[in-house]
Write a protein that binds this DNA or RNA. Structure first.
Ligand SMILES: [Zn+2]
Ligand SMILES: [Zn+2]
Lengths: 533, 533
DNA sequence: TAATGGGTGCACT
DNA sequence: AAGTGCACCCATT
């Protein structure tokens, strides 16, 4: 999965070492003489991946280092590791509370509980999509069988449409941010004893930004499913989500019901930017267990048993999973009695995340906008999406209250409310999670040169979001206009409070925008956010 | 895929560096002081994969080494290449002549012509399997849509079953010879205009040995297909092929009819070992064309057209491709008038390849036997395969004539007949095929230290085959017996003729065998090959 | 279906 | 030699 990246790592580390050797050539001389082989190894210009594999795997790094002969088809000892997640700390989350868990438990297993009593394997994905689309995570099935479904997230950076002709430059393609490298996984396994599906978020981290994309194929299929399920409530909620996304308004995940039966009221609207990058994830080290008595693998026909079970019992595989059921996954009556449920009590003091707007900060300090927002962009036009049969008039939604509310409550975050939440039910694994950043009790910007606003758990208020939104709304061309941040900062100054240094960008920061968008931003701000002035 | 291994490499290299630092601590002292950052970096015990990713992707390794911040996305330019095969030299082959073409045209596109008028996409694979199973190529579909099917070969080296318990050593797995790396491809594309399927062998080379494996899943499915098709002729032929394979007898590809309508009589039985490694393949270098006028990609909806065509016309997709048809792909009446057909005339002087027995020679001079031949091994037992309903009694087959014939005719190869064949219809592209080895006019063994008997086009006779067969028939355990080659050579001396040096193995050559197999070999030889004495 | 990890055929996009 | 969603597999502990 990650081999290109790791390959890069290896060669980069190699050249690090190499440069290190050269830079301190005199001093290193004797060292190199004492380690001729290693040095030679690092001096040879291109080490092929396979050659490097051979080098690294040649023995247990005893005393002598030897250069492997080429063309050797060495049998590389390679051991699959199993049960690597057994050592991970478990956390539990209700589906409604998943956004908190995703933020906090980045190196834990997050058990989703409760889950509906799925009648069919195909019902799991839409149910999860209801939860994870608002989190900006577009899930697809990576692998499945009769008793297991592994979901991964379908990250963006896909095939680009070449709009311009005579394109001398090749279409750039991010080499390390495709979905294959993203470690995020959700595992659903069916327990025949309990006759229920267990759902666990396995690797809660991402190699890419999180952004709800209403144009994705998966989302379209998901909407079709909702229509076929006559789940009008969810349809309505997702229309709101969609609209907010196109306006880059803050997204409140709680607007989507999870159908888990626990519709705990969400009372706090504090806004938190979720981390968009892998930040706290520490994969559990794979332990080498010495040979213990091996059980004979008599479980070979387990899948067959499971199939038989499915045939004889409730689960019936449908050939068209997206159009099968009027059985919308739902309602408390479907639930199995589960005494293991750990809930967060009454759900008070939840800190809900919202999604970062459509942008990505790159190392070279360019802000790359996400591709193409369609022409539904303008909020007050009648140019709504082509989805017919919708029951809600989106123009009737009033976002002002939400903004006021979040703007107000975000101050509670700074006042320390954030740390008073009680959703961490198990012990914190901070001992093993060296990279984990605790939730901030005060906002803390501008002290991170390269990261800009990502990579940290950050509490912001609506003005920040609007500011980001402005930056993010370019349409993907290469024009680079220098915008006047001061205007925006002045406009939003009443909302900045004590957060003055927030938008002191790097000197050489460049970001993209276009005129239409700028105009729209200004007028939109003027029309809708008088309270900021 | 390989990230665990590369991960290992990285940490191994890290600890190499680390140990290096410690072992030469005094000298390194200053170096480390001058590179505090790097050293610290390497000193921290567990570098998480993501952290390593971040480290490696930090810029272009200029002069200063700095610790990069996380979350940097580097954009790597990567260009898809299209029409890479346009520059390849085309050759044409009838299906019956494919074995020649595969041997000779290793860096050409081999157009198969004629092909039947397939009623359904699903008919293509079985038809190709009839051709390529006898070549030792187990094809699977890599990708398909309504107008295209890409086949690749499913190479061996799969998941091994662990026979022994308490296996301290991990299951070894060849790291570079899996099917993903084998370049061999067959492309079938449907032409709407001609209303026919065109089939082209695209990359005629392999990264592995070619060996017909009757135990493969694909072959079992293929046999099921044949049964459902009531194609008794083919069933019979493949039973013979299967039996020969298990006895490691030479396989004559012509025994399988191709149903192309051209049943040209095969008259020559010269035996040639096909190359088992990538030897003559030169992949066409992907050319960078400077910006030329790009044609607008208006072919986006071609697939839709094809689908519509398929719906309106003959092609109907069946949901169960292996059990659909009594329409066995067959017979001249199915053919479309095709004026482009290039044939080989009367098919005289064809040099037919046979497959190497079940072995693989590795660089370390160990002969690794192919996995597990089942208990059908003994030729004279009634312990035939569990496939019922077969119409032939395999025990009635007399192999002696075949051996005599091939033994006799193999001398024609040495006499120069081999080069007199006329099947190369297009101009030879020897200018661009630097690695292509012309067909040998005399046999030539023992001058290849490492490759032993692979990587070259070689003509052998039956005694060689028997000898190889003996070596190959171990059953995969790790015992290494030293066998007495002299006995075999004496036994077969009358067949060796002028080929004396053939079995002078390398000194440190070790090969595997077991007692049962040795006994079987001896008795089998004694009973059936009196003519050799 | 105990839990967990992975390979890969192949059709959809 | 499209990339990938997904399912049918199998592996180890
Ligand atoms: Zn992800
Ligand atoms: Zn191959």
């Amino acid at each position: 999965m990650d081999n290109y990246q790791l390959d890069q790592d290896l060669s980069d580390l190699t050249s690090l070492f190499h440069n290190n050797n050269r830079a301190t050539n005199d001093i290193k001389k004797e060292v190199m003489d004492g380690n001729t082989i290693l040095s030679n190894l690092l001096m040879t210009p291109p080490i092929s991946p396979s050659a490097k594999r051979d080098i690294a795997s040649s023995g247990e790094q005893e005393e002598k280092l030897r250069i492997p002969s080429s063309n050797v088809k060495t049998m590389v000892k390679k051991k699959k590791t199993y049960n690597t997640n057994k050592n991970k700390v478990k956390s539990y989350s209700t589906p409604n509370n998943i956004s908190n868990a995703l933020l906090k438990d980045q190196n834990k297993l997050i058990h989703l509980d409760p889950v509906p009593n799925f009648k069919d394997k195909s019902e799991i994905k839409p149910w999860l999509q209801k939860i994870f689309f608002p989190q900006g995570i577009d899930i697809v099935i990576e692998r499945s069988d009769s008793g297991k479904v592994i979901f991964k997230c379908k990250s963006p950076a896909k095939r680009r449409n070449n709009a311009s002709i005579h394109q001398e430059q090749e279409s750039t393609k991010p080499s390390s941010s495709n979905s294959a490298t993203c470690p995020f996984r959700i595992r659903a396994t069916f327990s025949i004893k309990l006759k229920k599906w267990n759902i666990v978020v396995v690797n809660n981290s991402h190699s890419h930004d999180l952004k709800f994309n209403p144009n994705s194929d998966e989302y379209k299929k998901f909407k079709d499913y909702l229509k076929n399920s006559d789940d009008f409530d969810t349809i309505k909620k997702f229309e709101e989500l969609e609209y907010r996304s196109k306006l880059n308004l803050p997204i409140n995940p709680s607007i989507i019901p999870c159908d888990c039966g626990l519709t705990s009221e969400i009372q706090s609207f504090n806004i938190i930017l979720p981390t968009s990058k892998v930040c706290g994830a520490i994969k559990v080290q794979k332990e080498k267990k010495n040979a213990r008595s091996m059980v004979s693998s008599q479980t070979a026909n387990k899948n067959n048993k499971l199939k038989k079970f499915n045939e004889q019992n409730i689960l019936k595989k449908s050939t068209q999973p997206l159009s099968t059921s009027n059985t919308s996954p739902s309602l408390g009556s479907d639930f199995i009695d589960n005494t293991n449920i750990l809930t967060t009590g009454n759900g008070d003091d939840f800190v809900l995340p919202i999604l970062t707007p459509d942008y990505a900060v790159h190392k070279n300090n360019k802000i790359n906008p996400a591709p193409l927002l369609d022409n539904n962009l303008l909020p007050l036009s009648n140019n709504t999406n082509s989805n017919d049969n919708m029951t809600t008039d989106l123009l009737e939604i009033d976002f002002t209250d939400i903004f006021n509310q979040s703007n107000t409550l975000s101050k509670n975050v700074r006042a320390g409310h954030y740390n008073s939440n009680k959703y961490n039910l198990l012990e914190d694994s901070s001992a093993s999670s060296l990279l984990f950043l605790p939730a901030p009790t005060s906002l803390d910007f501008g002290n991170d040169d390269d990261l800009l606003m990502s990579s940290k758990l950050q509490s912001v208020d609506v003005s920040t979001l609007l500011n980001q939104r402005r930056v993010s709304h370019s349409n993907g061309d290469n024009d680079e206009l220098s915008n006047n941040l001061d205007d925006i900062n002045n406009l939003l100054s009443t909302g900045l409070d004590d957060l003055d240094k927030r938008w002191e960008f790097h000197d050489n920061l460049q970001y993209k925008n276009d005129d239409m968008e700028s105009n729209f931003t200004s007028s939109f701000l003027n029309e809708n956010f008088d309270f900021l002035k």
